[in-house]
Nucleic acid binder design. Structure first.
Length: 693
DNA sequence: TTTAGGG
DNA sequence: CCCTAAA
């Protein structure tokens, strides 16, 4: 009974307050941020101006894009900006053609935006080129970003956590804010920025497995910079209204196979701005569907559904058919993390090696300002941090190294421009990432459905379970993404039918959670200590190395591939997926209190009524099944039978073991006898402790 | 679904 | 913890 009470208190996390971090700190930050922003804004504007000029100058530079794309490394060098600008310009021109550009942007602002927005393409270029054939080629896209976050174990809802994640790195965030403030990119804000960088490679290898992976760093966030933490704090703020803005940290992250070398964004500022707004609702919607189809949002376009493919026709010119599908592969991968510390950190810079490689001097150089910011931020963060510590003893940190979007099927007319292709890809990827991903939290292969549970309650904070912590990313379901601007053309849908397939792994709960579009942040994973995951998710050694974090990060998530299969009317391998999904449950050692409750229940109920035992003593502990209790009892009996020296694991009080033996022997003798009466006949053995109940 | 056991 | 045969 005692136990039961405990459970009531401890297992229902409903009452748990959200992150204690107070609004005050937030405000401070904002102030701080503002200051910083102000200083940075100038830089942005400058950049914008330059970009604008470049754009004007280069008009038929479509080709230039390509050139630029080829040598990603160039980006790093001082010349980066220009190249990017050029690329941006080219892109932009395309956009204009198609009418997809955002109109509401001021001139300067617009340039910037386009640059930022398109930036990712630059990265892609190399690939595209290699893939010269645009039409119907498969690309595997990889999106990488790192994000780390830590949340208090007692943090109440998982959902919230995810929201928090959204927050971008402090640097970025600031810059973003600044941007916003300037009023340049409102849309961005609206749309929500994404931090993702997209890398595309022509990947023949279709490893279904990799489709979408998230890697989580196991290492303690400690590594992360203070600046990061700061960010986290913000993010952690309960009201996650701002979450939408994200930062990108690094662009080309670790790609194992990719030819692609990670290219870094030239400077953090840019990144910050980078409007990742891709995710238009429409797109989102599309994405939502099983097949993640994405149609670039163009104003002038008309959409029609064609079996899973959406056609977009631009009046002005081109017809693009885009079918993008992402296949998700079944299972997810997980990772665990370790440090208990504080808030979530978005690791913008450090993590990617690419950055380190080409530390864009520009970035860093420009960063002078940012550096300052950081410092200030840091200090503030530290303060907050302490506060946090007080309120929460232990926090769980999650770090998602990166995730990959595995296959993307893009089909466009031969006459479409490279730029449009890029855009399409970018949008698709972006949409996937941000357009509505549902995040599921898996523990030992099981979904944690109760959002109100704390990490502690769920076991996520336990080191033992961390290894089995996983996140699942699914495209949000159509239902999930409700808000659609009137403008948005209706999109898609044939796919919805298939949703079931898509989400094998996903639990409904997740969907709902994310349905609130408010949170689109990437999933985070966390874990405290160790690393033993079996999932071979993608490791991004590079990033880690750069970060200085441990190299063993593993991918957290993988999304089941939907694409081709999904399209196929026939569900191919549910089994396969399922099997993939199935994971061993996390190991959750019984605590002494649990053991006590178990013993007590068994003393009263006997050993043949595990269901009753469960109901009696562990009704509130979802993770304890009657089978588990039975098994535990089995082990307890065994443990009690062996010499103390041979016992392993957390020691169980001898008195409990004694009770175990007594109850065991008692029920062994009586089980056959009193059946009907058993339930009413508690252990009568002369066990002083038994009487305590 | 729940038990009971082996793996 | 998992998996399963049996009930």
């Amino acid at each position: 009974m005692v136990v039961k009470k405990k459970h009531n208190n401890g297992f229902h996390g409903y009452g748990v307050p959200d992150i204690p971090r107070g609004p005050r700190s937030i405000r401070r930050r904002d102030l701080l941020k503002r200051t910083i922003e102000d200083s940075q804004i100038c830089a942005f504007e400058l950049l914008a101006t330059v970009a604008g000029k470049l754009l004007l100058e280069s008009e038929g530079s479509a080709s230039s894009n390509a050139a630029e794309g080829k040598d990603p490394s160039s980006l790093h060098s001082g010349g980066v900006k220009q190249e990017q600008l050029v690329g941006a310009k080219a892109l932009r021109s395309e956009c204009l053609d198609q009418g997809s550009c955002v109109e509401s942007v001021s001139v300067a602002g617009r340039h910037v935006e386009s640059i930022l927005r398109e930036f990712p393409f630059a990265v892609c270029d190399p690939v595209l080129e290699s893939t010269s054939v645009i039409s119907s080629s498969y690309f595997s896209g990889k999106v990488g970003h790192d994000l780390k976050l830590a949340i208090p174990e007692n943090q109440t809802s998982l959902e919230k956590s995810s929201c928090k994640i959204k927050g971008g790195s402090s640097d970025i965030g600031q810059s973003c804010d600044g941007y916003v403030d300037s009023g340049i990119a409102r849309q961005l804000e609206d749309e929500g920025d994404r931090n993702y960088n997209v890398h595309l490679t022509t990947a023949n290898t279709s490893n279904p497995k990799d489709e979408m992976e998230i890697c989580v760093n196991t290492h303690p966030l400690i590594n992360s910079d203070s600046s990061v933490q700061l960010t986290s704090f913000r993010d952690s703020i309960p009201n996650a209204s701002f979450p939408r803005r994200r930062n990108n940290v690094k662009v080309g992250t670790r790609d194992d196979d990719e030819k692609f070398v990670g290219s870094n964004l030239p400077n953090s500022k840019i990144r910050a701005f980078r409007p990742q707004r891709i995710g238009h609702r429409r797109i989102r919607k599309l994405l939502t569907s099983k097949y993640w189809k994405v149609a670039p949002k163009l104003k002038d376009c008309e959409y029609s559904n064609t079996n899973g493919c959406i056609k977009r026709v631009s009046r002005n010119r081109k017809i693009l058919q885009t079918c993008e599908r992402i296949q998700r592969e079944g299972p997810f991968k997980k990772r665990r993390i370790f440090n208990p510390s504080s808030a979530l950190a978005y690791d913008g810079e450090g993590s990617s090696e690419s950055i380190s490689n080409s530390p864009e001097k520009g970035m860093k150089g420009e960063k002078s300002g940012s550096g300052v910011n950081k410092a200030s931020l840091v200090s503030s963060s530290a303060a907050s941090h302490q506060a946090l510590l007080q309120s929460n003893e232990s926090q769980v940190k999650f770090s998602i190294k990166s995730f990959k979007v595995r296959d993307l099927y893009i089909e466009v007319p031969e006459t479409s421009t490279v730029g449009s292709l890029k855009r399409t890809v970018m949008e698709a990827v972006t949409a996937i990432l941000r357009g509505g991903l549902h995040i599921g939290v898996l523990l030992q292969g099981k979904e944690v459905k109760d959002d109100n549970r704390t990490l502690l309650q769920t076991g996520i904070s336990h080191n033992d379970y961390l290894d089995t912590l996983g996140f699942t990313l699914e495209p949000s379901s159509a239902t999930a993404s409700p808000p659609i601007s009137p403008k948005d053309p209706p999109v898609l849908l044939p796919c919805e039918t298939h949703q079931d397939l898509t989400r094998l792994t996903v639990s409904p709960i997740l969907d709902t959670e994310f349905a609130n579009a408010s949170c689109d942040p990437p999933p985070a994973a966390n874990v405290p200590n160790h690393v033993e995951s079996n999932h071979e998710l993608a490791l991004s050694p590079t990033d880690e190395v750069t970060n200085g974090t441990t190299p063993d990060s593993r991918a957290l998530v993988s999304i089941p591939p939907i694409s081709v299969e999904a399209l196929a009317v026939v569900p191919l391998n549910q089994k396969t997926r399922r099997s993939e999904l199935a994971q061993r449950r996390i190991r959750r050692p019984f605590s002494v209190s649990e053991v006590e409750a178990l013993v007590e229940a068994v003393e009263k109920l006997g050993t043949g009524r595990w269901r009753d035992v469960k109901l009696r003593a562990f009704e509130d502990a979802d993770h304890r099944t009657y089978v588990d209790l039975k098994d535990k009892w089995k082990t307890l009996v065994h443990t009690a039978s062996i010499a103390p020296q041979q016992r392993r694991g957390q020691p169980v009080p001898q008195d409990l073991l004694d009770r175990v033996l007594c109850a065991h022997s008692y029920w062994s003798q009586h089980q056959s006898k009193l059946h009907g009466k058993n339930h009413t006949e508690p252990l009568k053995i002369s066990d002083p402790q038994a009487g305590q109940v």
